[in-house]
Each structure stands twice: as structure tokens, then as C-alpha cells.
Deep mutational scan, measured.
Amino acid sequence: NQASVVANQLIPISTHLTLVMMRSEVVTPVGIPAEDIPRLVSMQVNRAVPLGTTLMPDMVKGYA
């Protein structure tokens, strides 16, 4: 099972991601792979992401 990136807190819209905001967890459905966490740092979310939500490629500007 592959770990995905999950929000560690509420991430407001247009926030630049930091390591503190993300954790890796095995979830269904599978989202952005956990090994991409370093790549996600300083990218922006294009919507509010609630605590515990799996980050999907379409939620992060410039990821997909």
C-alpha cells in the first residue's frame, strides 16, 4: 500500500505548503504520493483543505 499526502491541519486557500502542514498516511482513495512531499513545499493549494483530507493533484497549483 502506497502512502499519500494528507493535510495535518486546515490549509486555507492559496496557502504555500510547508512540511508541518502535511503527513503521509495510507488512505483510500490514493492521492499525491508521500514521496512527493519535498516537491510540494512552497506550492500553493487552490482550495481550502480540511484537516485529514488527502491531497489530490488538482488541489495543488502547478503539481499536475
Score class of each variant (00 low, 15 high):
residue 50 P to Q: 10
residue 10 L to E: 15
residue 55 L to C: 02
residue 30 V to A: 10
residue 32 I to S: 02
residue 23 R to V: 07
residue 20 V to D: 12
residue 54 T to D: 02
residue 58 D to H: 09
residue 63 Y to A: 03
residue 63 Y to M: 05
residue 46 N to G: 06
residue 15 T to L: 04
residue 51 L to C: 10
residue 63 Y to V: 04
residue 38 P to M: 09
residue 26 V to G: 05
residue 10 L to F: 13
residue 25 E to W: 06
residue 61 K to C: 15
residue 60 V to L: 07
residue 2 Q to V: 10
residue 7 A to R: 02
residue 20 V to N: 10
residue 38 P to E: 09
residue 55 L to E: 02
residue 17 L to F: 00
residue 25 E to V: 10
residue 21 M to P: 03
residue 9 Q to H: 08
residue 41 V to I: 10
residue 16 H to T: 14
residue 15 T to Q: 08
residue 41 V to R: 05
residue 35 E to V: 12
residue 16 H to F: 13
residue 6 V to E: 01
residue 7 A to C: 04
residue 8 N to F: 04
residue 5 V to G: 03
residue 21 M to D: 04
residue 58 D to W: 10
residue 35 E to H: 11
residue 47 R to C: 09
residue 51 L to M: 13
residue 49 V to N: 02
residue 48 A to N: 15
residue 9 Q to Y: 14
residue 41 V to L: 11
residue 61 K to P: 11
residue 45 V to F: 00
residue 58 D to F: 08
residue 61 K to F: 13
residue 53 T to Q: 10
residue 46 N to V: 15
residue 41 V to W: 00
residue 30 V to N: 11
residue 7 A to D: 00
residue 58 D to Q: 11
residue 59 M to Y: 13
residue 16 H to V: 09
residue 39 R to S: 11
residue 38 P to Q: 13
residue 27 V to A: 08
residue 5 V to C: 06
residue 20 V to P: 12
residue 64 A to V: 12
residue 35 E to R: 06
residue 4 S to C: 05
residue 51 L to Y: 15
residue 49 V to Y: 03
residue 10 L to M: 13
residue 34 A to Y: 08
residue 54 T to K: 04
residue 9 Q to L: 13
residue 48 A to C: 15
residue 17 L to S: 00
residue 53 T to S: 10
residue 47 R to E: 11
residue 57 P to M: 06
residue 59 M to D: 13
residue 46 N to F: 05
residue 41 V to D: 03
residue 4 S to D: 02
residue 20 V to R: 12
residue 6 V to K: 03
residue 15 T to M: 09
residue 8 N to D: 11
residue 12 P to T: 09
residue 48 A to Y: 11
residue 23 R to E: 04
residue 59 M to L: 04
residue 26 V to C: 10
residue 17 L to M: 06
residue 55 L to W: 01
residue 40 L to R: 00
residue 28 T to M: 09
residue 29 P to W: 04
residue 16 H to Q: 12
residue 35 E to K: 07
residue 9 Q to F: 12
residue 41 V to S: 02
residue 4 S to N: 01
residue 62 G to Y: 08
residue 4 S to G: 05
residue 26 V to Q: 11
residue 58 D to M: 10
residue 47 R to W: 05
residue 47 R to F: 07
residue 53 T to E: 14
residue 9 Q to G: 05
residue 19 L to M: 14
residue 12 P to W: 04
residue 26 V to D: 15
residue 22 M to A: 01
residue 22 M to G: 01
residue 54 T to C: 04
residue 42 S to N: 15
residue 16 H to W: 08
residue 11 I to H: 02
residue 49 V to E: 03
residue 10 L to H: 12
residue 60 V to A: 02
residue 57 P to T: 05
residue 57 P to V: 06
residue 24 S to L: 05
residue 49 V to M: 05
residue 32 I to T: 01
residue 55 L to V: 06
residue 62 G to W: 07
residue 1 N to C: 07
residue 26 V to K: 06
residue 8 N to G: 06
residue 39 R to N: 09
residue 41 V to K: 04
residue 41 V to T: 05
residue 60 V to R: 00
residue 6 V to A: 02
residue 63 Y to R: 04
residue 40 L to A: 00
residue 63 Y to P: 04
residue 17 L to D: 03
residue 19 L to K: 10
residue 53 T to Y: 14
residue 1 N to A: 15
residue 11 I to M: 03
residue 6 V to L: 07
residue 43 M to S: 06
residue 8 N to H: 06
residue 47 R to N: 08
residue 2 Q to N: 14
residue 27 V to Y: 03
residue 42 S to R: 08
residue 58 D to G: 12
residue 40 L to D: 00
residue 10 L to N: 15
residue 25 E to D: 10
residue 55 L to N: 01
residue 37 I to V: 07
residue 59 M to G: 03
residue 34 A to I: 06
residue 64 A to H: 14
residue 18 T to K: 06
residue 1 N to L: 13
residue 51 L to F: 12
residue 36 D to I: 07
residue 53 T to N: 10
residue 48 A to P: 10
residue 2 Q to G: 15
residue 54 T to P: 08
residue 61 K to N: 13
residue 61 K to M: 14
residue 23 R to A: 09
residue 56 M to D: 05
residue 26 V to S: 10
residue 59 M to P: 00
residue 44 Q to M: 13
residue 13 I to R: 12
residue 3 A to V: 07
residue 3 A to D: 10
residue 39 R to D: 06
residue 57 P to C: 09
residue 44 Q to F: 06
residue 37 I to W: 03
residue 27 V to D: 02
residue 1 N to W: 13
residue 63 Y to I: 04
residue 36 D to H: 13
residue 3 A to H: 08
residue 1 N to K: 08
residue 52 G to D: 12
residue 64 A to Y: 06
residue 43 M to Y: 06
residue 40 L to C: 03
residue 36 D to F: 11
residue 63 Y to F: 10
residue 23 R to S: 10
residue 30 V to C: 12
residue 48 A to F: 09
residue 48 A to I: 14
residue 64 A to C: 14
residue 12 P to E: 11
residue 46 N to P: 02
residue 17 L to P: 03
residue 20 V to G: 13
residue 6 V to S: 02
residue 10 L to T: 12
residue 43 M to P: 01
residue 25 E to T: 06
residue 60 V to P: 00
residue 52 G to S: 07
residue 57 P to G: 07
residue 38 P to C: 14
residue 30 V to K: 07
residue 15 T to A: 14
residue 53 T to I: 10
residue 5 V to H: 01
residue 60 V to W: 01
residue 58 D to P: 06
residue 8 N to E: 07
residue 34 A to L: 03
residue 19 L to A: 14
residue 35 E to G: 07
residue 5 V to I: 12
residue 1 N to R: 04
residue 26 V to A: 09
residue 44 Q to E: 12
residue 20 V to K: 12
residue 24 S to C: 08
residue 51 L to G: 11
residue 48 A to R: 09
residue 1 N to Y: 15
residue 15 T to E: 09
residue 20 V to S: 13
residue 13 I to W: 09
residue 41 V to G: 02
residue 49 V to G: 00
residue 41 V to M: 07
residue 38 P to K: 10
residue 21 M to G: 02
residue 23 R to K: 13
residue 55 L to P: 01
residue 32 I to L: 05
residue 63 Y to E: 04
residue 28 T to I: 10
residue 16 H to C: 14
residue 60 V to N: 03
residue 53 T to F: 10
residue 3 A to W: 07
residue 3 A to R: 06
residue 27 V to K: 09
residue 57 P to Y: 06
residue 34 A to R: 05
residue 10 L to R: 10
residue 51 L to D: 12
residue 57 P to F: 06
residue 19 L to C: 13
residue 50 P to C: 07
residue 43 M to D: 04
residue 14 S to G: 13
residue 23 R to I: 08
residue 29 P to E: 07
residue 62 G to S: 10
residue 19 L to Q: 07
residue 64 A to P: 10
residue 44 Q to D: 03
residue 1 N to F: 12
residue 7 A to V: 06
residue 24 S to M: 08
residue 43 M to T: 04
residue 15 T to Y: 14
residue 45 V to L: 09
residue 44 Q to C: 11
residue 13 I to M: 11
residue 19 L to Y: 14
residue 54 T to W: 00
residue 42 S to I: 03
residue 23 R to C: 05
residue 7 A to L: 03
residue 1 N to T: 15
residue 33 P to F: 09
residue 44 Q to I: 11
residue 26 V to M: 13
residue 60 V to K: 02
residue 42 S to G: 15
residue 56 M to E: 07
residue 2 Q to Y: 14
residue 5 V to R: 01
residue 48 A to V: 14
residue 29 P to C: 08
residue 62 G to K: 06
residue 9 Q to M: 14
residue 42 S to W: 11
residue 21 M to C: 04
residue 22 M to I: 08
residue 34 A to D: 08
residue 49 V to K: 02
residue 50 P to I: 05
residue 46 N to K: 09
residue 61 K to V: 15
residue 8 N to L: 04
residue 26 V to P: 08
residue 53 T to K: 08
residue 46 N to I: 15
residue 22 M to P: 00
residue 43 M to E: 04
residue 22 M to H: 02
residue 27 V to G: 03
residue 8 N to K: 09
residue 6 V to H: 02
residue 58 D to I: 09
residue 39 R to K: 15
residue 22 M to K: 00
residue 19 L to I: 11
residue 39 R to C: 12
residue 47 R to A: 09
residue 38 P to N: 12
residue 51 L to S: 14
residue 39 R to Q: 11
residue 25 E to N: 08
residue 52 G to T: 03
residue 16 H to A: 15
residue 47 R to H: 08
residue 40 L to P: 00
residue 49 V to D: 03
residue 56 M to K: 07
residue 40 L to G: 00
residue 36 D to K: 09
residue 32 I to E: 01
residue 33 P to N: 10
residue 28 T to N: 11
residue 1 N to P: 13
residue 25 E to H: 06
residue 61 K to R: 15
residue 15 T to G: 06
residue 24 S to D: 07
residue 5 V to M: 01
residue 61 K to G: 09
residue 53 T to A: 14
residue 6 V to D: 01
residue 7 A to I: 04
residue 21 M to Q: 04
residue 10 L to K: 15
residue 13 I to S: 14
residue 14 S to K: 11
residue 23 R to T: 07
residue 11 I to Q: 01
residue 17 L to T: 00
residue 60 V to T: 03
residue 19 L to E: 09
residue 22 M to R: 00
residue 63 Y to Q: 03
residue 8 N to W: 04
residue 54 T to N: 02
residue 43 M to C: 10
residue 15 T to P: 02
residue 45 V to W: 00
residue 14 S to P: 00
residue 21 M to K: 01
residue 48 A to T: 15
residue 47 R to Q: 08
residue 53 T to W: 11
residue 4 S to M: 02
residue 25 E to C: 08
residue 54 T to F: 02
residue 50 P to S: 13
residue 44 Q to T: 15
residue 23 R to F: 04
residue 57 P to E: 07
residue 17 L to H: 01
residue 51 L to N: 13
residue 41 V to A: 04
residue 39 R to F: 10
residue 33 P to H: 09
residue 5 V to Y: 01
residue 2 Q to E: 15
residue 33 P to I: 12
residue 14 S to V: 04
residue 59 M to R: 00
residue 19 L to R: 13
residue 7 A to Y: 02
residue 59 M to I: 05
residue 35 E to T: 14
residue 14 S to D: 15
residue 4 S to T: 04
residue 41 V to Y: 03
residue 23 R to Y: 05
residue 9 Q to S: 12
residue 14 S to T: 09
residue 48 A to M: 15
residue 5 V to E: 02
residue 30 V to L: 13
residue 56 M to I: 10
residue 23 R to G: 07
residue 46 N to L: 14
residue 24 S to Q: 08
residue 30 V to Y: 11
residue 2 Q to S: 13
residue 9 Q to N: 06
residue 18 T to E: 12
residue 39 R to T: 15
residue 27 V to F: 03
residue 30 V to W: 09
